[in-house]
Design a protein around this nucleic acid. Sequence first.
DNA 1: GATAAATACCTTGCATTACAAGATACTAAA
DNA 2: TTTAGTATCTTGTAATGCAAGGTATTTATC
Lengths: 115, 115
Amino acid sequence: MSQTQMMKGILDGCLLAIIRGKEVYGYEMAERLSEYGFGEVSEGTIYPLLMRMQREGLVTSVKKASTAGPKRKYYSLTDKGRQELEAFLERWKRLERSVNEAIRQETNEGSEGSA
Amino acid sequence: MSQTQMMKGILDGCLLAIIRGKEVYGYEMAERLSEYGFGEVSEGTIYPLLMRMQREGLVTSVKKASTAGPKRKYYSLTDKGRQELEAFLERWKRLERSVNEAIRQETNEGSEGSA
DNA sequence: GATAAATACCTTGCATTACAAGATACTAAA
DNA sequence: TTTAGTATCTTGTAATGCAAGGTATTTATC
């Protein structure tokens, strides 16, 4: 019953969505997620996830020098990654609908509010 | 990347919402979840979850005879369960907002659509 | 050169949780 | 007795987010 449990199976899709927009690197994704309201997402979460997605052929990466630190690993979507993103978006919409139906239906139980 | 992974940390909250409406038993909750679009939720998921929530003091249960089968275990919310439900609803709203922001922002990248 | 801070990536081990598979038991019908 | 539907519980497995810790680069300060 924590915020972190709720992100299981969702974070990867969000990362795909973020990567779709433009090439980004891991460290930057963590900052973006924080802006979007996910809170501080651990690097121990992000990096293994990105490596797994690369292993699965959803993303590719290239290293580029940075002006202020070590090289950055920029990620891009593959065609397979784009397909996976579409599938994720559908899964998310379905989950969103289901959850909202469950909590709405039951929250209003006994007060039809027909006025 | 499956539907089941997405439900982690969400199912328990939905069960609390369902229980809030009126006394229900596990078998019935599975049917309800299916109606709401969650798909078939395994009994190996529901029962351990309910037992855990009872152990944590979120719900109480009473056994009642059924007309067509073994006794049913009806669950009700405790005050603590009601509080947990409120907390879940806030977490869910936040997650929903965050995910939608992440996928919207990035989906529209490069086409401001100012027309 | 030494030290510190910010950036940037990676690894190991752990906790949580949904599920498949299977067990148990009661009722009703054949 | 057998079959089917209802109803609950247990065991073992897989997936995944995270804490904690490690490595490396750049810039700035001493």
